[in-house]
Measured scan of single mutants.
Amino acid sequence: MEVRTIKVFTTVDNINLHTQVVDMSMTYGQQFGPTYLDGADVTKIKPHNSHEGKTFYVLPNDDTLRVEAFEYYHTTDPSFLGRYMSALNHTKKWKYPQVNGLTSIKWADNNCYLATALLTLQQIELKFNPPALQDAYYRARAGEAANFCALILAYCNKTVGELGDVRETMSYLFQHANLDSCKRVLNVVCKTCGQQQTTLKGVEAVMYMGTLSYEQFKKGVQIPCTCGKQATKYLVQQESPFVMMSAPPAQYELKHGTFTCASEYTGNYQCGHYKHITSKETLYCIDGALLTKSSEYKGPITDVFYKENSYTTTIK
């Protein structure tokens, strides 16, 4: 009895394709271990004539594949690729409408935090270190965002349907971005203890939790000093293409032309909904596939993004 075979390709990165001759009487799992086709788990399936010449994702289970996976995804987590594939199996079914010149995501599976993050990423200057993220990001900007969303979920250790947080998501993504040249110098002034300067680099240099107003941050924000008295913390120097200011959701007025974009969060910790506000020729609110415009805006804002380049204080 002759062994019926077909020729397929296996890959971990969709760049390096490895030619395989597979036995049609055995499952993919018996031949390769966990195997995925377009995100779908085909591990328990036997090869079919229609699979001839198709590319299958496999887990990096030998040295060659491990090197290829690390170079593309910059992670050695053995569960990463499987999590990416199972997320992709959902995100490829989502709709990605162009809204006001940006790629958004039609609401499904509690994905409003991903839509808000995706919209924000198209408006701030950011370059990702893992080629996987950078490639998928370019495709997302062009309207094909399924891979990018699935990668975000995998890097953030999230599953489809789980509630997510924009600030946490951005923080994970910033860790995989090139923020080497970003720098922030802060000064804390206390009447009792004097003053202390701190220099922050990388992710810490672009994120701040405690106030939404970048102007206020430049002037000074009140913080408790270690001595128990009130101290003032203010920005001395900022070198970065953008800054992200966050605070627990509270009524906040966004003035046209003073910011790049913002995240609105309605609801409580267990259950809520994100919308995205962007400042173009007027203010726009993007909620999944829905767009509304207004000249002014007041609502429960939790993150505001500002364009920056270089700032030095005039406070002496």
Results as ranks from 00 to 15, higher is better:
residue 3 V to G: 12
residue 5 T to H: 10
residue 11 T to K: 06
residue 14 N to R: 13
residue 16 N to R: 09
residue 17 L to D: 07
residue 17 L to F: 08
residue 18 H to T: 08
residue 19 T to I: 11
residue 25 S to T: 14
residue 28 Y to K: 05
residue 29 G to A: 07
residue 32 F to H: 15
residue 34 P to I: 06
residue 37 L to S: 12
residue 50 S to C: 08
residue 54 K to T: 13
residue 60 P to F: 04
residue 67 V to Q: 14
residue 67 V to T: 15
residue 68 E to A: 06
residue 72 Y to R: 09
residue 75 T to F: 04
residue 79 S to A: 13
residue 85 M to C: 08
residue 87 A to I: 07
residue 89 N to Q: 08
residue 90 H to W: 11
residue 92 K to C: 10
residue 92 K to I: 10
residue 103 T to M: 05
residue 108 A to W: 00
residue 109 D to K: 05
residue 110 N to L: 04
residue 111 N to C: 00
residue 113 Y to T: 05
residue 116 T to Y: 05
residue 117 A to F: 00
residue 119 L to S: 04
residue 122 Q to D: 03
residue 126 L to C: 09
residue 133 L to R: 03
residue 138 Y to W: 10
residue 142 A to R: 13
residue 142 A to Y: 11
residue 148 F to N: 02
residue 150 A to E: 05
residue 155 Y to T: 01
residue 155 Y to S: 02
residue 164 G to L: 04
residue 165 D to G: 07
residue 166 V to C: 07
residue 167 R to I: 02
residue 171 S to F: 15
residue 172 Y to I: 15
residue 174 F to P: 00
residue 177 A to T: 11
residue 182 C to H: 01
residue 185 V to I: 13
residue 185 V to G: 00
residue 186 L to H: 08
residue 188 V to H: 12
residue 188 V to S: 07
residue 190 C to G: 02
residue 191 K to R: 10
residue 194 G to H: 02
residue 201 K to D: 07
residue 203 V to G: 06
residue 206 V to P: 02
residue 207 M to G: 05
residue 209 M to H: 15
residue 211 T to N: 10
residue 212 L to N: 04
residue 214 Y to M: 12
residue 215 E to P: 05
residue 216 Q to E: 12
residue 218 K to D: 00
residue 225 C to H: 09
residue 225 C to F: 00
residue 228 G to T: 02
residue 233 K to G: 11
residue 233 K to S: 12
residue 240 S to L: 01
residue 242 F to Q: 00
residue 245 M to P: 01
residue 247 A to F: 03
residue 247 A to D: 05
residue 254 L to M: 06
residue 260 T to G: 01
residue 262 A to N: 05
residue 263 S to R: 02
residue 264 E to G: 07
residue 264 E to W: 03
residue 265 Y to G: 05
residue 265 Y to L: 00
residue 267 G to M: 06
residue 269 Y to I: 13
residue 269 Y to S: 15
residue 273 H to G: 00
residue 273 H to T: 02
residue 274 Y to E: 00
residue 275 K to H: 00
residue 279 S to C: 09
residue 282 T to K: 12
residue 283 L to K: 00
residue 283 L to I: 15
residue 285 C to I: 15
residue 286 I to W: 00
residue 291 L to I: 13
residue 294 S to N: 10
residue 297 Y to L: 05
residue 301 I to Q: 01
residue 301 I to K: 00
residue 301 I to L: 07
residue 305 F to G: 01
residue 314 T to N: 15
residue 316 K to M: 15
